[in-house]
Design a protein around this nucleic acid. Structure first.
Lengths: 236, 236
DNA sequence: CTTTCAAAAATGTGATCACTTTCTGGAAAG
DNA sequence: CTTTCCAGAAAGTGATCACATTTTTGAAAG
């Protein structure tokens, strides 16, 4: 009455690895982080198919946790389940882009204002450190590192809000436009990117809610503006 | 609540039921609809545990599609996966409630404005029919039917927007507050509920974007106001 | 009657299987 | 050279299994 385990040359490791990593759903959490960060840093290209077995092999786990994570990400509209069951990174369209911009502009400044009272001068210093790193990566043209750090910068602020509703919504929005962002940077580079991070940091130091919201708004408009100018070329 | 296959004493039916219902993922879709509408009509009580095997048995399917749907709904924050892996309907808190109200006020009027240009006088008639039905249910105190119809009314409008980004976000918000809504109606009844549906219909007939947004805003504030007054009693 | 604690039941998780559908590649026909 | 079509490969889906953990139960002890 013994099921054969770990007989195949490669494939998932032994059993549940009882106390290896830790608590319940550890494998799923690991898979979730891997795919999420892959989306946010542009490892997945819009239109590219994402297969359960492929990812499972790549991550060294069984198809099960991958299936569940893919369903989760599809529920957040970070992935798209096509009628034939195939999963892929959604293609960007003008409609989707316009809506993503609108939703970001509605939610993110509000989230930043909620976060402001929880942000201290220490946080401003942390953010400055991240922003300095961003400037370096922009100059060296490291698009992947830039995307990761830009995400870290924004969500350092948003997370401080302690939000349980708005934050997940914004999370979903970033997962949706990030893959497209990456294709644009691959085309036009990162050299002439400008952000309003320093204005945001200054507003945090002064506890200036209006100023912070304005900085975030401008940052979104600038950043998405670059994407917007390229979207027609990409599609048309 | 849900159709039971009732072929064998227990356990799901044999194989995939090849051409029975139709296309790919049919069972998952059925489970998804069942649980979603259950949440929206208040069949699930906040704090109540939701078990995979329990739902699977109740719906007459194997645990697999239920697992995936529960993960989806957890990703939309309609359900909560606790550290021990158990899944439950999240409890309402003051923080969550305030954020849900804020998010609804930010997104839904905007969504209604997007939809306006696609709404015709025929749609106004359809909405009137739904609203008349709502009035009846409010008088008879049928909370479940009210919730279903109120959802139908709002999303009849929102769906007309053709939105692919804002609409799913609002979907998630409704899934989050609906279960709590139900518990409040069970406590205070539905008799003294007032909505701004007729104002919204009038604005649609006149193609008045400002008026429609104002009606939706007022409708949300009125409806959530009733919930808000009860939330402290429920929690404190 | 309350508390303690061990046995039993229930639950989530990861893996694997069987089956159907879908996609891919290449040979054959035009 | 292009198109058609079929066989093999690949992929998603639902079901089932084995296992660790958690929860519940129920009896014994205080």
């Amino acid at each position: 009455m013994v099921t054969r385990r770990s007989t195949s040359p490669n494939g998932p490791d032994k059993t549940h690895e009882p106390g290896s990593t830790g608590s319940r759903g550890a494998t799923r959490g690991q898979v979730d982080n891997a795919i999420r960060s892959g989306l946010l840093t542009g490892h997945f290209i819009p239109g590219k198919a994402v297969t359960i077995r492929g990812l499972a092999t790549e991550l060294g786990v069984s198809p099960m946790p991958v299936r569940e994570v893919l369903q989760r990400l599809a529920a957040e509209n970070a992935l798209e389940v096509k009628p034939n069951g195939r999963v892929q990174v959604p293609d960007m369209t003008q409609l989707r882009f316009d809506e993503l911009l609108k939703a970001r502009l509605l939610l993110e400044p509000e989230l930043a204002k909620l976060a402001l009272e929880n942000l201290t001068s220490k946080d401003a210093r942390d953010l400055t450190r991240i922003d300095d790193d961003i400037d370096v990566r922009l100059k060296t043209g490291d698009a992947e590192a830039y995307m990761r750090l830009n995400h870290a910068f924004h969500f350092y602020i948003y997370r401080a809000s302690g939000s349980e509703v708005l934050l997940p919504l914004v999370d979903s929005l970033w997962l949706q436009f990030a893959p497209f962002m990456r294709t644009v940077y691959g085309r036009v580079g990162t050299a002439n990117l400008e952000d309003r991070h320093k204005e945001a940091i200054r507003a945090i130091e002064k506890q200036d809610a209006i100023g912070l919201a304005a900085a975030i708004t401008a940052d979104i408009e600038d950043g998405m503006g670059l994407l917007g100018r390229e979207i027609l070329a990409q599609i048309g």
